[in-house]
Design a protein around this nucleic acid. Structure first.
Lengths: 336, 336
DNA sequence: TTGAAAGCGCTAACAC
DNA sequence: GTGTTAGCGCTTTCAA
């Protein structure tokens, strides 16, 4: 197969130990020997085998990251930050994608365990509890990021999504809206804690400030928002303030509203959450809620790796505050 | 550390061999023994250690994917498709992100080699040749996807980006534009083959149909397109047809044009490439070039794994054709 | 049908 | 400062 330490040892006329020590920059090795070893290694294109090293060490230098949908820009940027943070701390990141599916979630958790990841970042809300069970049974250090699975008592670095829901309802009420609606994820995904929290915050505040809010199962894509909004806009009493479970969905609502001749920001207020780069474009100018993704992921990865290095369970419980970014899609009545 | 095959063997009162065989569903093991083994394994929460397995086998079941920027939706969706395709074929995917940086590119290639990936999908255009050299020295099966590094003679499944550039220039010319401009990546990244190919196709066709095209270094983000366009729009003779190296950049151009009172689709035509979901929104309605990402990645991963399974180098050379999606951002003079 | 033993590539005692 | 040796968890002859 591939070049081993043995061949490097042979070529540089030292023992395997010496080669190993040279690669670990052990101070016992002379510069001269080290150079000889490195020269041989380079000539042979030797690359250490991490499986062998890990096996010997009894531990890897890998952390896992479980996300729902890596194709979604929100998760993709989390993965990017996580990878860099982990790398800077000497760990590699193994990202797996559950695709919002229970069965795949267990499959990928199993994959992480087979790979003996030292810790796991959880940004996937469990459909089943099986994955969590497995991780717990393995005593794998765990940190929930972004949102926290229902009934999960462990460490977390999360966005205050209930507060985000409140912010949304408060803002819409303040802008003069009286018939609020929340467009959440598809029926099958709406039980995920993120959406539950958003909904709770939104509904409670809506009830307090205006009236009972309508909840509609839409989805997290432009197409889903569009479809849901089409139905909504043909109702006899249409809502005048719509909060979507993400920005993409809100784009779909805007699209449908435009098509129906309903003026966004005048007849109806629309807002989302995630604050994607495109939401700031003046043509969309979507009011959104920004989540401090970078800080979130950096904090989580750092805490996770710290726990790993100190051989303890992570205990961090941090809640980051969302920020409302008001734009033209939700203008006050007076300004209309 | 973690539970090993030995403990499962002990609990189920068989040898380690039997446990191993049982897990491989070897036909020599009786159903009865198998059940006993599985029961014990479950009780102990045994999960096989893939490092040990791989070491013994002398080979992993992992393929690597090297991308430039996983935060970019275009790459993110490639990763998602690659992961699923690989999983379906019994391989796991190890994704690494070069961040467009030469040094990181070599670092992550080294990481892939240490992990003994059996093959690599290359969607990162090399800044240095070092990464490629390493991979070649290791005889790692390699397939370039999306675009092909300069001077790379190996297997590839690519988009015909030169043709994409032609399509863009042809379309703009047909729409009546006479002063074309190409907004490419930042100076430091513009030598990547993808942008070189786009530029070549665009310039050659522009020269043939209209006049010499202007080339401007912008970048691949909204902000970059906006900045570049601001400069461009204050020129004495501004271009009337702009082709951007991706959709995000084009959004930035539209934003700047709106701000300058230059009417997109009337005074100026703007188009991009990638055809992001948001480009179809009527408020943006960005003409773009669609690349068959799913087919591309599926084909590449399948070919790569096929080569791996048959212990040969991949030889596929496939070029997929881009498709122009005309929208309102580039309307014909007559329709204005 | 099951078990004993060797070895994948590497590291860490321990000896020299 | 360098070498010898054992063993990480697993699979795979080969023997029983």
């Amino acid at each position: 197969m591939s070049v081993t330490i043995r061949e490097v040892a042979k070529l540089s006329r030292v023992s395997e130990t010496t080669v190993s020590l040279a690669f670990q920059k052990d101070s016992r090795i002379t510069d001269k020997t080290r150079d000889r070893v490195f020269a041989a290694a380079k000539r042979l294109n030797y690359v250490p085998n991490s499986a062998a090293r890990d096996l010997r060490h009894g531990a890897t230098r890998t952390v896992g990251f479980l996300v729902n949908d890596i194709g979604n820009p929100f998760y993709a940027s989390m993965v990017q930050v996580a990878e860099r943070t982990a790398r800077a701390l000497g760990f590699q990141l193994l990202t797996v994608d559950s695709g919002w599916l229970a069965e795949r979630e267990t499959a990928v958790v199993e994959q992480l365990l087979q790979n003996r990841v030292r810790g796991v970042l959880l940004a996937s809300n469990e459909k089943s509890d099986r994955g969590l069970e497995l991780l717990r049974a393995a005593h794998t250090p765990l940190i929930a990021v972004d949102t926290c699975p229902q009934g999960f008592a462990g460490a977390r670095v999360v966005n205050d999504l209930e507060r985000a829901g409140e912010l949304a309802a408060e803002h819409l009420a303040e802008m003069g809206c009286r018939r609020l609606a929340f467009l959440t994820a598809a029926e099958s995904d709406a039980s995920f804690s993120a959406f539950v929290a958003l909904r709770r915050g939104f509904e409670q505040t809506a009830v307090r400030l205006t009236a009972k809010a309508q909840v509609v199962h839409a989805g997290l894509t432009v197409a889903a928002g569009q479809t849901a909004a089409r139905t909504l806009l043909t109702q006899t009493t249409l809502p005048d303030g719509i909060f979507c479970a993400n920005d993409l969905c809100a784009y779909g609502v805007i699209e449908a509203a435009d098509a129906h001749g309903v003026r966004v920001g005048r007849d109806i207020a629309v807002m989302g959450i995630d604050d994607l780069e495109t939401s700031a474009l003046s043509r969309l100018s979507l009011t959104s809620i920004r989540q401090p993704v970078n800080a979130l992921v950096q904090t989580a990865v750092t805490a996770l790796i710290d726990a790993i290095e100190h051989d303890k369970q992570p205990i961090i419980k941090k809640t980051l505050q969302p920020e409302l970014i008001a734009r033209a899609s939700t203008r006050a009545k007076g300004e209309r």
